[in-house]
Write a protein that binds this DNA or RNA. Structure first.
Lengths: 111, 111
DNA sequence: GTAACCAGTATCATGGAGTATACCAAACTA
DNA sequence: TAGTTTGGTATACTCCATGATACTGGTTAC
């Protein structure tokens, strides 16, 4: 019981650490939704700056969350893709989206 | 499709905002796990300081995430409880714990 | 040939989340 | 009655994530 709790807190903090910051999840979501180019991703996330997107993409690549490919001869020269590791966040993201949506509905209903 | 995406990003950012910071989720988890006293919660979350716990609890009370009751004659004078609203995070938290745990296992397996 | 788009980088500024440390009054407890 | 626990507050500091703004070198579209 006691140990179990510590383990859970640990697991939570691990997850929070990997998903840390304002932009990680929106970026993952955007890429998983079919945006693969830098500007495409940028436009799909309201409020993000070029600088933040650039930084986050770099670190996420280091952390194996996404894969960046550069191919001068392809129609899309620079392409960002999600890795299987990244996709393992699917359920987490889904639940968060679900919560966010119902939260909004709740607020609208109460106003 | 396009609108749907914006809505999802919005929902994600809403959720992130409410759960923002390093400590919210661990605190919710702790309270939901049966810790109801200030020091109890504090001890259950490694690394948190009195100040941060105090601050977070206050704001979470304002946001209706938790309920604080003071009763001088009860055996527990000050008690923190989760609200139904707070409990709506259950699925989100569960998924995050699940991810964190399997992530740890993964790392151990690969080392 | 110029305007717009792509994929970023460079610099500078800043607010507030988080840390560290000490302290308090009341209650309980040995 | 001295020590410990409880539920916090006060003050001071630090640093880093984020924001704002500008710029660049290459490519494609008109």
């Amino acid at each position: 019981m006691e140990r179990n709790q510590k383990e859970e807190v640990q697991a939570l903090q691990d997850t929070l650490h990997v998903l840390g910051g304002k932009w990680r999840l929106p970026i993952i979501n955007s890429i998983c939704n079919g945006n693969h180019r830098f500007r495409e991703i940028e436009r799909s996330i309201p409020g993000i700056t070029t600088r933040m997107l650039s930084r986050e993409l770099k670190e996420m690549e280091l952390n194996m969350l996404i894969k960046r490919t550069e191919d001068r001869d392809a129609e899309i020269q620079v392409k960002y893709e999600s890795t299987p590791y990244c996709k393992s966040f699917g359920p987490v993201i889904e639940e968060m989206i679900k919560w966010g949506k119902s939260h909004r509905e709740e607020i609208i209903r109460n106003s």
